[in-house]
Design a protein around this nucleic acid. Structure first.
Length: 313
DNA sequence: TCCCAGGCCATGT
DNA sequence: ACATGGCATGGG
């Protein structure tokens, strides 16, 4: 099929590279940083995204379904363009933590992506007490072993891409073979199989969870019913997979910056469930509660990049 | 060699 | 209610 290309003008300034690789997405393992090409599969559609300027991107595909993906509304929504990043911090941050606030100047083009809920759930179940490098490797192997293989021809080269596995494929996966993809962790593999089965049998409906306006605590508790999902991963699923920008995941990095930048004494205690909720409430005093997680992700990225000197890609 | 990585869970006080 | 160890492995 013929290659389709469309130039899309975004309604805000976006840094595509930083948005895709700030650590929220483990899916962008196919890229060409030199020429600004990023390749992935969204809704079973192979896509190449290329940044042309601050607020224009080119989207290229050869798929049948491409019409529903390449429209401006979808892309603007994917990059959560409607969120005004000037409003995600409260006045308290500007007043009480001006040094932290000034650090964030360069990060306004960093957008949170609205990603597929199931993909987000399984990916973050692979992210427990382990480095980003291994997390990406696990997701990459899951796709290669259990995902549908799709290709796109670009500049004369056929590029192979693997879609994220369907719930059905993971629900029927063999435990020992799946654990080969989960860093040899059999507990994690078993949890993923159970989670996939609960999606297949309908006891967990992520689309309904995301569409409904249920309170964040209730949403979190629902996700925590699944083995292998605690507060942190539940909040990640809500934030990155369900578009709940009020969800504020607290991991080891967030815990660190809450202690160092915001002088939280709780942040120097162990991250027990009780302390997690205390930190969550504290963060909402200097972040706009409705966008606490959105702001938290920018702070997270800033902390990793500038203080910990970590590479996300 | 030791500690830390986008944690969660079972067990022991 | 809290603390601790196991899970697994690569990198600093």
């Amino acid at each position: 099929m013929e290659l389709i290309s469309k130039i899309i003008k975004l309604k805000a300034v976006v840094d595509v590279k930083q948005s895709l690789f700030s650590g929220q997405s483990f899916l962008w393992d196919n890229y060409d940083h030199t020429n600004n090409y990023y390749m992935t599969i969204i809704k079973n559609t192979p896509l190449i995204i290329r940044q042309l300027s601050d607020n224009t991107i080119e989207v290229i595909s050869n798929s049948m379904n491409v019409d529903s993906i390449i429209i401006d509304e979808f892309i603007n929504n994917y990059f959560s363009i409607e969120v005004d990043v000037n409003k995600i911090y409260s006045e308290n941050l500007r007043k009480l933590y001006p040094d932290v606030y000034s650090r964030l100047n360069g990060y306004y083009p960093l957008r949170i992506l609205r990603q597929d809920p199931f993909e987000t759930m399984i990916s973050f179940m692979c992210a427990q007490g382990i480095g980003m490098h291994i997390i990406r490797k696990q997701v990459s192997m899951l796709k290669k072993f259990y995902g549908e293989k799709l290709s796109i021809t670009f500049n004369g080269d056929e590029i192979l891409l693997y879609a994220f596995p369907t719930p059905q494929r993971l629900a029927n996966a063999d435990l020992s073979q799946l654990s080969f993809c989960t860093n040899n962790n059999k507990i994690r593999a078993a949890n993923i199989i159970l989670a996939a089965r609960s999606v297949v049998d309908g006891s967990l409906d992520l689309n309904i969870l995301g569409a409904s306006e249920i309170p964040l605590a209730q949403l979190r508790n629902t996700l925590c019913q699944i083995r292998g999902i605690g507060f942190k991963i539940a909040d990640c699923i809500a934030l990155f997979g369900l578009g709940r920008f009020d969800a504020f995941p607290i991991d080891t990095h967030v815990k660190q910056y809450l202690g160092t930048w915001f002088k939280s004494t709780t942040a120097f205690r162990s991250l027990s469930p009780a302390n997690y909720l205390i930190l969550d409430a504290e963060a909402r005093t200097f972040l706009n509660p409705d966008f606490a997680g959105y702001a938290g992700h920018i702070l997270f990225h800033c902390w990793r990049k500038e203080i910990k000197k970590l590479q996300s890609f």
